[in-house]
Amino acid sequence: MVIVSAFTDGFTALRSNPILLAPGLLIGGGSQLQYVDHLIDSPVLSAGASLAWLVVFPFVLGGFIDTAQAAIDGTDASLSGFITAARTHYPSLLLATILFVLLVFGAAIGLSLIGFVLGIGAMALAAVNEMAAFVAGVVSMLIWLASVLAVILFVQFYDTAIVIEHESVTGAFRRSIGLVSSNLQNVAGFSLVWLVLLNAFLLPEYLLRLTMTEAGPAEVFPVDLGIPMAVLLPIGIALSAVGFAYFYTVYTAYYLRLIAAAPATAEEI
């Protein structure tokens, strides 16, 4: 089964090439920049750090995917190769990442407008039957969420298409849509399993993050853990590093198996 094989490939590649943890550490550190304001008490500097990371992330991602492919294929997976691949694919990945964000947010906003119109209808329905109005509101929210997730599902492989198959920015999105359309059930199953396992792995970090909220740790845990920020951040970085290194190696392995079964190029789809 392709899904199980991808997770096995990811584990084997990471075990044989722990160098993949190095870019994982970069991702782990970058993921914690959202908490900089807790340390420096400067929202402007914190926002600047987060924005800078969004610009740097495609660089790290491109290098990682190429290095993960080398590890999976059993060839040389090195930091020099990581840097070379990161430089090579950065312009395309940066532009594609911006386009990806615009597509997702555009879909979310556009569908929200439709939901707003439906919400007006639900308000009118409330005058007749409150329960029916409530159900209609919940259904419209679920439809909105499912639609946004569907957009993400179909364009999610733009990054691997650029790095592994050297597609152009627009070609990468066409390639992703074509692959998902041809393997919808399999890709949906993989995406669900991948997302659930990733979040399960990062659950300890999520719980620790809740201790940083204004609500306070006492409202999250039955007892105050008393863990200082200086300890929470390294824990978050470590978990994010290992989680990213493994699950994105799995993601790369799955894409390699997917295109092996459907080798058509974007122009042929």
Rank of each mutant, 00 (worst) to 15 (best):
I237H: 01
A200L: 14
L102Q: 07
I114L: 15
V148Q: 10
S50Y: 08
D41P: 09
F221Q: 09
D73R: 14
Q32Y: 12
G106V: 09
Q32I: 11
L45R: 13
A230R: 12
E267C: 11
M131F: 09
I27F: 03
A264Q: 07
G121D: 12
A52M: 13
I152Y: 15
G243I: 00
A172C: 15
S80D: 07
N199E: 13
L239F: 13
T265V: 02
R257K: 11
I3D: 04
G110W: 13
A6D: 01
I259F: 08
S50K: 10
L102T: 13
V196A: 10
S168V: 00
Y90V: 02
S5P: 03
S5D: 15
F7Q: 05
F82Y: 07
V104C: 08
T12V: 13
D41H: 15
S42A: 11
A136D: 08
E165L: 04
A245H: 01
S42W: 14
A238F: 05
L195D: 14
G10K: 03
P204W: 07
I19D: 03
F134I: 11
V55P: 03
L113T: 13
G63K: 00
L179A: 02
A71M: 05
L125D: 03
G189M: 06
E219R: 08
F105P: 03
L26Y: 00
V250Q: 02
H166I: 06
A262W: 09
I114F: 15
S191L: 12
L207Y: 04
H89Y: 11
I65L: 15
A264I: 04
I120Y: 10
A245R: 03
T84G: 04
V55A: 10
L94D: 01
L232D: 02
G28V: 01
I72N: 02
V223R: 10
W194H: 13
I98W: 03
G74H: 05
E165P: 03
E267Y: 14
L79I: 07
L95T: 12
L125C: 03
M141P: 12
A107F: 02
F173N: 09
A261Y: 07
G171W: 08
V250F: 02
Y255I: 00
V101H: 13
L111W: 05
R15Q: 09
A136Q: 06
S140R: 05
G74W: 07
V163N: 02
G30L: 01
F247K: 02
M229P: 06
A85C: 06
L99K: 02
S176L: 06
T249I: 06
G48T: 02
A241Y: 00
L179R: 00
L142W: 13
V180G: 00
I152D: 15
S92K: 01
L51Y: 08
V231Q: 09
F134K: 10
I235N: 01
